[in-house]
């Protein structure tokens, strides 16, 4: 009983991830799978999903710069506590040196997704997708004046 109390007071500043097995069927389109620690991650995805009746080779190109979604700034988080200069101190105590997972099964990891078994410090991921459908009018309207 005494030993149990002593072990609960221990602090392990760095925890280790123990994973028995990882089974991933698909990690596509800039998805990342990492076993180990990582300092900083900046994942970015921008896509125009254009559905057309005409072939892309004859219908012309599409440009990211035409749409404000691709260059609008990130939304701002209003934090009056932080703005007033108050400091938030984070104390983290790890009672166990390990995080244990038996088995991880992932069917698909999509665009700019991150699968990480290990410690990370700073992760920023940004995904911007514009969806457009373009198809011809079935009954063309007569020109004005007719």
């Amino acid at each position: 009983m005494m030993a149990a109390n002593e072990s609960s007071d221990l602090n392990f500043p760095i925890r280790t991830a123990n994973v028995g097995a990882i089974c991933i069927i698909s990690a596509a389109k800039s998805a990342s799978v990492q076993l180990g620690d990582r300092g900083e991650t900046k994942a970015k995805l921008r896509a125009i999903a254009l559905q057309r009746q005409e072939d892309h080779t004859t219908a012309g190109d599409v440009f990211f710069e035409s749409y404000p979604i691709f260059y609008r700034p990130f939304p701002v988080l209003n934090d009056p506590v932080d703005d007033n200069g108050a400091v938030i101190q984070l104390d983290r105590v790890n009672g166990s040196p390990n995080i244990t997972v038996g088995c991880i099964r992932v069917t698909a990891a999509g665009s700019a997704a991150s699968i990480l078994a290990g410690n990370g410090m700073h992760l920023t991921a940004d995904s911007r997708i514009k969806h457009i459908r373009q198809y011809p009018r079935l009954h063309p309207t007569p020109p004005a004046g007719c």
């Binding site: 998805a31 990891a109 997704a113 991150s114 990480l116």
Partner: peptide, 15 residues
Amino acid sequence: LLGISSASMLQVGDT
């Protein structure tokens, strides 16, 4: 997991 979609994360560890 069926899918981890765009700009999502799955992490076993601390951050």
